[in-house]
Each structure stands twice: as structure tokens, then as C-alpha cells.
């Protein structure tokens, strides 16, 4: 069970049970949908980007514990960050869950480090990164406003 706990850490289980920022943002100016056809996980990420800063970020969707917790913790981590910072964290997170050579470069990633256990479960990497890829797609989106449906 000890290695299972590396994956299902308390903080992950907590975010799965009580996801933070689990809502739509009505006046979002960035939004993207993510879908994992392998498992049917769906997510929509909403952002309010003001002067290059993520004034608000939230999500809705259905998914496993890993994908829900990842989305929840992502929104907590990115709120208040600049767009440029968000892109850097995106890269760091991606390396965190795929690379086996961790190290000091992840020092800034804070609580997100709990997802390092995912790298031992290659089939679950997509679960952990779905929200992040969706967030990235939202950042790259050009439209000013997006329909919520």
C-alpha cells in the first residue's frame, strides 16, 4: 500500500473530494475544453485574464481522482500568476509527471510536487495532464469572449 499512497496522497484525495474553483466563470475571456477519449474524462477550463494576469481561473468536468485533483490544484496554483508564469509552470508540471530525473528545477512548483508519484504510472500521466493541456489551450486562444456552452 505504501507505493499506492505515493500516487493517492492525502492532498490529492482531498482535492478530489472537494475540488476548489469548481465552477464556471460567467465573464471568462478564455475558455477551452479537454477530453480524454480513452477514459471519457471531460473538463472545461475558464479564465479571466486581466492585463496579462490570471485574475480568476476555474474548471468544471468529470474525471478520476488524479485528473480532478490536478485540475483543482492547478487553479489554486495559477490564480494571480501572469500568463508567462503559467506557461512556465505548465512546462514544469509536464516534466514533473513524465521525467524520472526530478531535482531542484521543481523547487517553485510547491504543493504540485505531490503529483510526482504519477510518473510511476505511465497510463495515468494523461489523467494528470488533461487539465494542464486544456489550460494551455485556453491561454493560446485568441477570442475575447467565449460562449459558456
Amino acid at each position: 500500500m505504501s507505493d499506492l499512497r505515493d500516487l493517492y496522497q492525502e492532498v490529492i484525495l482531498d482535492h478530489h473530494k472537494r475540488p476548489r474553483n469548481f465552477r464556471r466563470i460567467e465573464n471568462a475571456n478564455r475558455q477551452a475544453d479537454g477530453y480524454n477519449p480513452l477514459c471519457g474524462d471531460k473538463i472545461s477550463v475558464y479564465m479571466r485574464l486581466e492585463n496579462g494576469v490570471l485574475a480568476d481561473i476555474a474548471f468544471i468536468g468529470t474525471g478520476c481522482a488524479i485528473s480532478t485533483a490536478s485540475a483543482s490544484m492547478m487553479t489554486e496554483h495559477l490564480k494571480g500568476k501572469t500568463e508567462a508564469e503559467a506557461r512556465i509552470v505548465f512546462d514544469q508540471f509536464h516534466r514533473l509527471v513524465t521525467n524520472h530525473s526530478g531535482g531542484p528545477e521543481f523547487a517553485d512548483i510547491g504543493k504540485l510536487a505531490v503529483f510526482s508519484g504519477v510518473r510511476e504510472y505511465p497510463v495515468r500521466v494523461k489523467c494528470a495532464t488533461l487539465a494542464w493541456h486544456t489550460m494551455h489551450a485556453a491561454l493560446n486562444q485568441k477570442a475575447e469572449t467565449v460562449a459558456t456552452e
Binding site: L38, C39, C64, I66, C127
Partner: peptide, 26 residues
Amino acid sequence: GIHPHDIGTILDKEGVAIRTGHHCAQ
């Protein structure tokens, strides 16, 4: 309250192989 993927991963650790997902029958 528990996603099938999480069930599958934990069962795998217990040496039990099952399938999780939509089974190509969405």
C-alpha cells in the same frame, strides 16, 4: 464517488488485472 480508473490502478497494485474505460462501447 470513485472513478473506474482509480479502481483499476489500485486493483493493479493488488495484482488484479481488470479493464476500465468505455470498452469501445461509448
